[in-house]
């Protein structure tokens, strides 16, 4: 998928664990793991807002667009 989730990078920058983020954004660990591993098919604006608030970042810091092989 051409959308890359850089959640782990932002978490490392903020020195925040998955458990801590899970508590702050009120999201289950499994859902957060789905997002972190790039398996998610969609992200709710409310989730994105909560993550950005917790990590003090912009959506662009978490999501990145990389053209796929067919789009290059």
């Amino acid at each position: 998928m051409p959308i890359i989730v850089n959640l782990d990078v932002m978490m490392a920058k903020r020195k925040m664990s998955l458990n801590e983020l899970s508590e702050k954004v009120d999201l289950t660990l499994s859902n957060l793991s789905i997002l972190k591993t790039g398996k998610a098919k969609a992200v709710r604006f409310s989730t994105l807002e909560a993550i950005c608030q917790a990590l003090d970042c912009q959506p662009g810091d978490i999501l990145e667009y990389v053209p796929g092989p067919s789009e290059v």
Binding site: N31, I34, K39, A40, K41, A42, R44
Partner: peptide, 8 residues
């Protein structure tokens, strides 16, 4: 359902 399950 699958899409719903993978929506966070």
């Amino acid at each position: 359902q699958q899409e719903q399950d993978l929506t966070v």
